[in-house]
Computed example of a mutant assay.
Amino acid sequence: MAFDELLQHVGDSGRFQIWNIVLCILLNIMSRSHMFVENFSAAIPAHRCYVQLLDSPIPETNVTLNMTAEVLLRVSIPMDSNHKPEQCRRFRQTQWQLLDANVSATNMTELETEPCLDGWIYDQSVFKSTIITEWDLVCDFRLMKSLSQAIYMTGLLMSVFTGIVSDSGNVESARWLIATGKTERALKELRKVAWINGKKDIAESLTIEILRSTMKEEEEPVRKHFTAMEIILNPLIRRTVFFFIILSFSTTLILVGLLLNLESLGTNLFLNQVLLGVVDFPVRVLSYFVIRHVNRRPSIMVSLFLSGSPMLVNLFVPREMSMVRLLLGMLAKASISTLFILCIVFQSEISATTLR
């Protein structure tokens, strides 16, 4: 009895497999939520310097009582190139002369400014509070957010490396246990699968002799067992592992860079998050046909190209064209999702059982 027949015998699509799929889905939901919650918990709302004249609960003079917030803002904070209040600078002195329509733009650029010495005022129309507003991680301190993301990315990429090495050398499936001669352990696992799938009689009938006959029919040498040192020293295995490390690194870098920078795709973070998630559903269907009808290397090459090129194009698309930027982001996300599936299948196909 070959292993595929043995697997069908104990059940290859029963409760055991369903529970494994459900568990993987739940773990992915929790890990992805933790991974990308920073888009919202660390969102950077619109902000400007705190100005005593405008933001103090007690007006400085009676003159300001009859002035609108827009007027007070104009004399307190300079405007940027988009004619919006500067986010990190304010006038050192109140510039009442700016209320005069005859004041030229040249004169305005010569006015003395200073950093936000008294803190910032944040727009609370979308987010009442984020870690950015709590700790004032804006302007000169904005790099602290990037630093935290860089630290997180380092840990994530290390997990990709260790995960691939682990997957390549120590995944204890029943097939792997049989191929490496661990028949007693394989018997225990197969009995557990049959028991969970409701095939108790089959679980009781499985014996060491059946597994040994399976070992003889396996195409791969059953006595060959790769140790960690053999994996490192074997040139073919080393090249295979190195290839998938580079491929996984590239894919993860594009994906995390895209999903941790949703604000670059448009002003509505919630819509961006939903659309980038919804695009995965048709991609899963498309991936099935790609796997069945397209060679691995061309499909991976095209997926890589379509993952990175939209992000490069987005560098030259103005932020005002938010719909174009979002569509390019969705194309990149769809390509990355396809690439992940192709990589998993390709790695299994080119790796021997004892290596997997």
Rank of each mutant, 00 (worst) to 15 (best):
E189P: 00
I245K: 04
K182C: 04
N234A: 05
T227S: 15
K188P: 01
A203F: 13
K182E: 12
E209P: 02
A203R: 04
T162V: 12
L190V: 11
R238T: 05
M153L: 15
P221D: 15
I208L: 10
I245S: 03
F242E: 02
L157P: 07
L236F: 10
K200H: 14
W176P: 02
T162H: 13
L156D: 14
K188T: 13
R175K: 15
I196W: 06
W195S: 11
N234Q: 09
S166V: 05
R239H: 05
I232C: 11
T240F: 04
E217R: 09
K188S: 10
S168W: 04
R238Y: 11
V160I: 15
A174V: 07
K192F: 11
I210L: 11
T214D: 01
M153Q: 14
T240A: 06
S159D: 06
A179V: 06
E219L: 15
A203N: 03
N234H: 09
G163Y: 12
I202M: 07
L247I: 11
V171R: 13
M158I: 14
F243M: 09
E172D: 12
G169I: 01
S159W: 06
R175Y: 08
D167T: 12
E189R: 06
W176I: 03
S173P: 03
F244I: 12
I237A: 10
I231T: 09
E204S: 13
N197F: 04
S159N: 13
M229I: 14
S205M: 08
